[in-house]
């Protein structure tokens, strides 16, 4: 049975289910408990993170398993990696993915390497939850989408859920996966409502979802951009073009097969990614398809991404910065050479 729930509530639900299922699961990070034991805040209840995602969890599981930390990413991320290596299943919240610079060594050189360097004898069942995404007027240091950085590093799994149901299943899968996993929560999706299965379930990594079937064009959307792709697909359908929209759901591992099979069918590919355009998920997927489905391509692969620029603070500029259905349709018109579709 499904119930309607927000992206934010799906995360909260998944964390509670994981913590109930396994007492080794802990939640650690800046403000994750949210002042639950601060005397003068008791009447208001716990806030639970900067967006209130973990609200109420400390009340159910207590301070022993829901740990507020000082603003010191290297410190608590190091603690989480160590806890994972020594038997716990920590969920560590990095408030904004933009802050990864402060604790990259713990993630990149420690968590990602232990299993490999210790000949498989060590495991790091760590889940990092982090917030990404532009469109929230949060300026250049709080709006980036840095999943490509982590996709680049072997030993890390990278999850980019685009809806509440996927978020819950993928987050639960992350917690019970024995490798370090980083789950990207797009801050503009927290309020998104969707049907979510009740109770415990997991969605496996490396399995893309075909959100919409079509024969004329394949669009791979990364995270939130799946929704932009679906809007563009609706508009293209009105002009007689059927678009297949693919949500890879995880960038590492990547479900190459689903993407390649789709391109074999449609002959055309657009990748929509709001991250920076260089060395990105978009370029990676374009390269894979160029290599493995070359003979099936009937048009150049197009990428609809942010420009190679920091995210602007100005709301009109930020809107211009982001991928949009119009940009996707323009890209498609360049692929088929039909000026009818050019909207800009």
């Amino acid at each position: 049975m499904t119930i309607k729930m927000s992206y934010s509530d799906a995360i909260n639900d998944a964390i509670r289910l994981a913590m109930r299922k396994d007492e080794n699961v802990i939640l650690i990070g800046e403000d994750v408990a949210g002042g639950a034991e601060v005397d003068h805040l008791q009447d208001q209840g716990a806030w639970g993170g900067v967006f209130g995602v973990t609200k109420g969890i400390v009340e159910e599981f207590g301070r022993g398993r829901v740990i507020d930390t000082p603003i010191a990413e290297a410190g608590y991320m190091g603690a989480a990696v160590s806890a994972a290596a020594t038997g716990l299943r920590p969920i560590s919240e990095l408030m904004f993915n933009d802050f990864i610079g402060s604790c990259l060594d713990e993630v990149m050189n420690q968590a990602a390497k232990f299993h490999y360097m210790f000949g498989g004898k060590a495991k790091v069942p760590l889940t990092i939850r982090t917030i990404d995404g532009a469109g929230f007027n949060a300026a250049a240091q709080h709006s980036q989408s840095l999943y490509a950085l982590f996709t680049h590093i072997p030993g890390l799994k990278v999850v980019v859920p685009s809806n509440p149901s996927d978020m819950k299943g993928l987050l639960l899968n992350a917690v019970f996966d024995d490798d370090p996993v980083i789950v990207f929560e797009d801050k503009t999706l927290y309020g998104m409502k969707g049907e979510v299965e009740e109770g415990f379930y997991t969605i496996p990594f490396g399995k893309a979802e075909i959100k919409r079937a079509g024969s004329d064009l394949t669009i791979v959307g990364i995270g939130k951009q799946v929704l932009t792709a679906l809007k563009a697909a609706d508009q293209l359908a009105k002009k007689g073009f059927e678009t297949e929209v693919i949500d890879p759901r995880t960038l590492s591992p990547l479900d190459e097969e689903t993407i390649i099979n789709s391109v074999k069918k449609t002959g055309r590919l657009i990748i929509v990614d709001e991250a920076y355009p260089r060395c990105s998920a978009a370029t990676d997927i374009a390269a894979i398809v160029g290599d493995k489905a070359f003979d099936y391509l009937d048009a150049p692969i197009k990428r609809v991404t942010a420009p190679h620029s920091p995210v602007p603070f100005s709301p009109p500029l930020e809107k211009l910065y982001m991928p949009s259905p119009e940009k996707i349709i323009n890209a498609f018109s360049l692929m088929v050479g039909d000026k009818v579709f050019t909207t800009a």
Binding site: G267, D295, Y296, L297, D298, A299
Partner: peptide, 13 residues
């Protein structure tokens, strides 16, 4: 004076 043919990979195959 004939320019190089522009052909998509799929069309070529």
């Amino acid at each position: 004076d004939q320019p190089r043919l522009r052909v998509s990979p799929a069309a070529r195959k």
